[in-house]
Design a protein around this nucleic acid. Structure first.
Lengths: 107, 107
DNA sequence: ATGTATTATTGCAATATTACGATATTATAT
DNA sequence: ATATAATATCGTAATATTGCAATAATACAT
């Protein structure tokens, strides 16, 4: 018990839920938001900026990264994270078609 | 520990995360999807359709409802749920502006 | 080689979520 | 009043998530 029964849903539905999960924590929204406000790529300062411990930020970055939303590149001793626009657009497209389809036959 | 530190983020960010959370479980996506496939409003049959126990469906419906996404009306001994289109559109609009803003200054 | 700065991983405690059986509630029908 | 059907709530077990201290790994500089 306790764990989500993913096998009873189709891939389409599981994909939407998995994508939403990435944005379902404010720290991850804030991280993406911070990335967007930077001229170039960002590196560390998320820890100072957001106010969570470094391991916590690293953990959230991992979730975002594993969803394919980041392009990281090494710049000296730090890592420069950058949004993977193509993937981000894919998320937007998929979520919008979920919205569209859900509204379609509604009363 | 363990709980999300909501107070360190601004309202905008917490709202996005809260909205995403609604869609972050496949059962809730499936419920909304099923509603969309019905001619009129729906009632029970979610339990048969989705394959989770009745209390579990009820719990997920509560989450969707507390997010303001449902319009329920009593029809005899059952309840007819229906999508609250206005609220649903608001979700879509907010999420899209998050996408837009995030892409804005990206490298 | 040693030191320093950045990021990742490990381990663990606190909390949240998911799922369901049992039971209560609500609304109709007989 | 009693039975029936639909939905909600309660209690609880299993699992997941969040957050952080401690530590490891990585990359550069001296």
């Amino acid at each position: 018990m306790g764990s989500s029964k993913l096998h009873i849903y189709n891939d389409e539905i599981n994909e939407i839920a998995a994508m939403a999960k990435v944005f379902a924590h404010p720290a991850r929204v804030a991280i993406l938001n911070y990335i967007s406000r930077q001229e170039a790529c960002i590196c560390n300062d998320l820890v100072d900026e957001i106010g969570l411990a470094q391991p916590t930020i690293s953990q959230h970055l991992k979730v975002i990264n594993e969803a394919g939303l980041l392009k990281g590149s090494f710049e000296g001793k730090s890592i420069c994270y950058c949004l993977n626009i193509e993937r981000f657009n894919y998320f937007q497209k998929k979520l919008n078609s979920f919205f569209k389809q859900t509204k379609l036959n509604c009363c």
